[in-house]
Design a protein around this nucleic acid. Structure first.
Length: 515
RNA sequence: GCUCCCGUAGUCUAGUCCGGUCAAGGAUCCGUGGCCUUCGACCACGAAACGCGGGUUCGAAUCCCGCCGGGAGCACCA
């Protein structure tokens, strides 16, 4: 827009104040600009998930950006389940309503109000009439393929010439069920020559025989997302729509309809596409794998769902900070999960107790082990003595990690925080136990190995991010733990007792979080 | 192909609207040293960027033009 128009629009939106692009950093990193025309206490935002699976890391931006602005303006945040008819790949299922509310609980975001789009289907029909009366729509009976081809070619079908009266009759026939499913749609009349092929006469309503989990067969004529939002953003009083830029064409649709209805609607703001390098998130893939039991539920680490992050011991605060670091940038980004892990480490490292664990253990018997060194007192945290100490069984029999033993064959090594031993030179692959020799207790600069005293070693099962289980042994202190307690397995990483694990059950089942 | 969006270190991000204070700030990652005992944390130090080409200007990461690159949309899904 030209400077004059811009100035006057800005003035209309709240005077010169709105002109300054005041931004506010969220902690560190990304910036969050002022929302255009936002007045404290009068901002209404919405979260609109489709209930076909658990919310995953990809939804986190939607959740936290909206929550951030709700707090900033003391506004309201509505949860509106976008449970219209969906498609073959995207099916509405009852269990997901609660699942998603649970996901928001974990995220620490409480919606002020909750709505179901399926309750509001009838409310969309009067707006359809209004659109038809304004000459903004027509009933198209082209098969889907022809409709698509014509759209690509910029060709109008004969029905496009309908008068409003004719369209209204056709619309009534759609509502009365006179057309078989898939044989008629209500289309917006934009311009079949619109330079953006995506915007040519998009579909507003379609026919579906879905047996909807909440409303059954009550409706056959279902609105498409854009139309339903054009209505609901109005009726629910949404002031700002914050969403990913993959949905920009929806802005144009909503504005087009509001224009037709001669009303003023919400403001739109977007952010760019966010990908996590390690996470190939796909709700429909997760859906299949969870249903068929390949995945261990919606909190299987492979889903990258919010609840799987919780299971791994990643805090919602870490996810929030991770998201905040991107601000409202429109750039398409691919971020390593390490950034998320770094945020989590900042939050849990100082309070997480250390424990010893070795994977793929080899039993090592030490000859010449000094009497009186059967156990050791070890700090729970090397940097925080206030977290106390624990007693761990020591020699003469230990478990060491196979790769450590192999890597240091024939060398003198130091059992961390304990004593020095010499490993035998020839260690065959696959051996179960070896003999080593005690050398001294003094702390010398030797390779330091993680160890578990055999006398109170317990079996440990680690569920990895790839869904695979690793067997190992850990120290007996692991049996004295709170449910779902986090630990750091020294030199391995942060883990959390699994959700259904009850101490002191054996093996100790933990879920790997991150290094 | 068409439409829209984006392009600052390996990865994110601040700065771009209102050109100089930016010989570009922060985070993360990486490297080195410290903390005589973690492949964690913490501390210190170090390496590392304005996509390319023109133009305007005393001066451009910031303005203009043209390229190139990346992403999204083009579903009777959301």
């Amino acid at each position: 827009m030209d400077p004059g128009t811009r100035a006057s629009e800005l003035a209309a939106l709240g005077g010169p104040e709105a002109r300054a692009p005041r931004t506010e950093p969220a902690d560190r990193g990304g910036e969050f600009p002022e929302l255009v025309g936002a007045r404290p206490g009068a901002v209404v935002l919405r979260l609109a998930p489709f209930p076909s699976g658990a919310l995953h890391i990809g939804h986190a931006r939607m959740i936290y950006v909206n929550d951030y602005y709700r707090r900033r303006y003391s506004g309201k945040l509505l949860l509106v389940f976008d449970d219209t008819a969906g498609s073959e790949e995207k099916k509405v299922e009852t269990e997901f309503f609660d699942l998603i509310r649970g996901d928001l609980d974990f995220a620490g975001v409480r919606p002020d109000e909750v709505y179901y789009k399926s309750d509001r289907i009838a409310a969309f029909y009067p707006y359809a009439r209004r659109t038809i009366e304004a000459g903004g729509a027509y009933v198209c009976r082209c098969p889907a393929e022809l409709l698509r081809a014509n759209r690509a070619a910029g060709v109008a079908c004969p029905e496009r010439g309908q008068t409003a009266e004719e369209t209204m009759r056709e619309w009534d026939r759609m509502l009365k069920g006179e057309y078989p499913t898939g044989s008629a749609v209500l289309r917006l009349r934009t311009d079949m020559k619109d330079p953006d092929p995506a915007f040519r006469d998009r579909v507003l309503f379609r026919l579906s025989d879905i047996d909807h989990p909440r409303v059954g067969h009550r409706y056959r004529v279902w609105p498409m997302l854009e139309f339903s939002w054009a209505v609901d953003d109005l009726e629910l009083g949404i002031t700002h729509v914050l969403r990913g830029k993959d949905l920009v064409i929806e802005d144009r649709m909503e504005r087009f309809l509001w224009n037709l209805w001669k009303v003023k609607g919400a403001e739109f703001v977007h952010w760019g596409v966010l990908r996590i390098r390690e996470a190939k998130v796909s709700k429909s893939k997760s859906y299949r794998e969870v249903k068929t039991g390949v995945f261990d539920g919606w909190d299987d680490p492979r889903t990258w769902s919010l609840r799987s992050l919780d299971r791994r011991g990643i805090t919602s605060e870490a996810v929030r900070a991770f998201i905040a670091s991107f601000g409202m940038s429109l750039s398409d980004i691919e971020v390593p999960a390490e950034s998320l892990y770094a945020e989590n480490r900042k939050r849990i490292d100082a309070t997480t107790l250390r424990r010893s664990y070795v994977a793929d253990p080899v039993e090592v018997s030490v000859s010449g082990w000094p009497a009186g060194l059967e156990s050791a007192e070890l700090p729970n945290h090397p940097d925080h003595p206030d977290l106390g100490r624990r007693t761990a069984a020591a020699g003469p029999k230990f478990y060491l990690a196979r790769k450590d033993v192999l890597a240091h064959a024939g060398q003198e090594v130091r059992l961390k925080d304990l004593a020095n031993i010499r490993l035998p030179a020839d260690i065959p692959d696959g051996i179960e136990r070896v003999w080593a020799e005690f050398t001294s207790k003094e702390n010398r600069r030797l390779a330091r190995l993680q160890w578990v005293g055999a006398a109170n070693a317990v079996a440990v099962d680690v569920l990895g991010i790839d869904g695979q289980h690793t067997k190992g042994v850990g120290e007996g202190a692991l049996l004295r733990a709170e449910p779902r307690q986090r630990f750091q397995f020294e030199r391995v990483g942060f883990v959390r007792l699994d959700r259904d694990y009850i101490p002191p059950e054996v093996p100790v089942r933990v879920v790997y979080g991150h290094p």
